[in-house]
């Protein structure tokens, strides 16, 4: 399977080179695409530009635009699948073939890497509560079709499904909307368990305000989905 592995980054450079090398080591069909979402630090020197696709956004636009760019490129250049992994080294590159297997077998259009939360952070109960809320709401409006971990940033999507979802406007932290939209569009979404590593560098961009805004956006999305469902 010819696979585009896109790695959005914001100020994460330490793990980047090793990530790109690990992606290339998966096989000749795997091409890394690094999208620099307006980092304050120089990202380009950390990667081998002769073997890795790279685009630097002129500002911080968020993961939604990064996803659109990757979906556009994957759809236009004959890739079979698109995989997203984080640049901070939390997602196991060696798990990518396991994510791709259901796509290759035609069992799924979108495969989500469900995280086992082994991070042991003090905020884990709050995090679990918020994740539980997202999960509950997602499964309610999709009648159980949505994945349990709708906040996972590690997923693989078939290029036809990506092209189909590309007309949705994806904003910052687009994962829950993307997965729920996939279910509502009738695509098959499955989960594969992965072991998430602790963050190797930097801090999450998801602060309290961003988290509240994300929650608000998701609730607006759910409201819209419910209104559309009633119209149908």
């Amino acid at each position: 399977m010819r696979t585009l592995v896109f790695i959005p980054t914001l100020n994460d450079t330490v793990a980047l080179s090793a990530l790109c090398t690990a992606v290339e080591a998966l096989g000749p069909g795997f091409v890394p695409l690094v999208i620099d979402d307006g980092s304050r630090v120089a990202v380009a020197p950390a990667i081998d530009r002769t073997r890795t696709l790279f685009f630097r956004l002129p500002g911080n636009y968020g993961l939604g635009l990064c996803s659109h760019i990757a979906f556009d490129h994957g759809s236009a250049h004959g890739y079979d699948a698109i995989v997203r992994i984080d640049a901070d080294g939390q997602h196991p590159v060696q798990a990518i073939p396991r994510l791709l297997a259901p796509l290759a077998e035609g069992r799924a259009d979108l495969v989500v890497g469900r995280r086992s939360d082994g991070e042991g952070l003090p905020a884990a109960p709050v995090r679990r509560l918020v994740r539980g809320y997202y999960s509950l709401l997602s499964r309610l409006i999709t009648r159980g079709a949505a994945p349990r971990d709708v906040n996972s940033g590690f997923f693989a999507i078939g290029v036809a499904a990506a092209a189909r979802l590309n007309h949705h406007t994806l904003e910052r932290y687009p994962e829950p909307e993307l997965f729920v939209a996939a279910c509502l569009e009738g695509l098959t979404v499955v989960e594969v368990a992965i072991e998430q590593s602790p963050r190797r560098e930097g801090v999450s961009t998801l602060n309290l305000f961003q988290a509240l805004r994300m929650l608000y956006r998701f609730n607006m999305f759910v409201l819209g989905a419910l209104l559309r469902a009633r119209r149908w």
Binding site: M1, R2, G29, R51, L53, F54, I69, D72, H73
Partner: peptide, 25 residues
């Protein structure tokens, strides 16, 4: 910005394919 990215990545993709060995399968 999306259009700009598409054009720039298309250029890189062409360069990458001209240097890469053919993919198996």
């Amino acid at each position: 910005v999306r259009r700009l990215a598409a054009l720039e990545l298309e250029r890189q993709e062409t360069a990458l394919r001209s240097h890469a060995p053919p993919a198996a399968g």
